[in-house]
Design a protein around this nucleic acid. Structure first.
Lengths: 228, 228
DNA sequence: TTCACACTGCGACGTGCGTCACACTTATGG
DNA sequence: CCATAAGTGTGACGCACGTCGCAGTGTGAA
């Protein structure tokens, strides 16, 4: 693990609260995992005894309905944590984790974490905050599913991805989200075709340019307006 | 506060982890609040410095869209806790809390809770578990919004309410949920009319009988099947 | 370079559910 | 106990979006 990895790890809620000493001790328990695009890290219904922090790349969390249709809970990037629910609430995983891009993860096992948590109660507070934020965000998304139409949800998703993964350029904001339109559709809870039409409409209006697994946002204000 | 209240309070995640001594100390900081049907306990966007545990009655948590439409996040009963998100993640409330029935609550202020949390780290673990469970549940509901049709969601909501508030009788399961059809509709993210038609259809098939703010579930198996 | 397969683009069509309209029934508080 | 409001039941209608079908466009493996 290089210096950059240490920095990325340090921004995860799990490490944020720790001083250098504690952080170093926890890092010592980390295993590194390498994934290539499409590879499954864990699947729904499996027992889970690990928690992950992304060092590099992107991961999607998906749920599969009994009939095989999928929906995407979230797309996560560097410094973000997942798989922790089964640490606090020991049950099988309720989502699968699949690599959207090639990447590397830091894996922390429950058996290492438990004693550490007890020895460092300040982490608990940070984790509670992280979960509270997630819960708020999830409630927000639920409300959107009920009240906002598909184009609006697509606009919202793009803005969120732009905020997290966007790179400013001369012409606008380059958002390399690495998602196929199918995945984007699963993320907003709509069909691939409808999402495609919404994107085409936005492009038509000059709000963005569509690229392979990416968009160039040209008029972020219009997009923002459409998302409300 | 009577013995029964103490017992109800003890089943809340906040008290669950405490021994009699700790529990007693925390109870000493509690203020009791009385509400009548329709009364608002707190509103969206307000600063929140309190957390509540229901002693008696039911509370709904609602969100209001900019255009005034509402959606119901959940309906809570005795021993259930709410308003804690702003304790861990200090921001204005993201939902309003309104009494569905007359009832009584135990209110705990953040300023009393913080030092207590630091002195009793075991509570943190229980709270993490409670939040993890809520997050799982919320993800479940989100998936239903995407994949399940309105009658299916109504069936699911009824089964959930039945589990939490149902009373067995000779003829079936009496579920006095105390919700109007309008509220039930907001809970499942549909219009009042559509929910009414779904209920009428279930009643028609003999799966349940509709009563004022309640249903008699007659064939829980059929209902369960329809919910999947 | 070529073949195969994944991804994108787009029109035709059907339908689940929201909206509107209105009648009827049940609470409730003055 | 009556008046008014709140809640329930049901049909007519339209539209957003899902499904289907197919053509065009990468793109990566051999």
């Amino acid at each position: 693990m290089n210096d950059r990895d240490v920095e990325v790890l340090g921004r995860a809620p799990l490490f944020e609260a720790l001083d250098e000493e504690g952080s170093k001790a926890l890092r010592a328990t980390v295993t590194e995992v390498h994934l290539s695009r499409g590879q499954t890290l864990f699947s729904e219904d499996q027992e889970g005894d690990r928690l992950y922090v992304i060092l590099e790349g992107k991961i999607k969390l998906t749920r599969t309905a009994p009939d095989g249709r999928e929906n995407l809970l979230s797309v996560l990037g560097p410094s973000e944590m997942f798989g922790e629910l089964s640490l606090f609430d020991p049950r099988p995983r309720t989502a699968s984790a699949i690599a959207v891009t090639e990447g590397r993860l830091a894996a922390l096992s429950h058996s290492d974490l438990w004693p550490f948590l007890k020895g460092h109660p300040e982490i608990g507070i940070h984790l509670l905050r992280a979960l509270a934020q997630r819960l708020r965000r999830t409630n927000e998304i639920m409300a959107d599913l009920v009240f906002t139409d598909v184009p609006g949800r697509v606009a919202k998703a793009l803005l969120d991805l732009a905020e997290r993964f966007g790179q400013p350029t001369e012409t606008g904001l380059h958002v390399h989200h690495d998602l196929t339109q199918e995945e984007l559709a699963q993320l907003v809870g709509a069909s691939r075709e409808t999402v495609n039409k919404a994107l085409a409409d936005f492009a038509q209006r000059g709000w963005l340019r569509i690229e392979a697994r990416a968009v160039q946002v040209l008029d972020i204000e219009r997009l923002r307006k459409r998302s409300r």
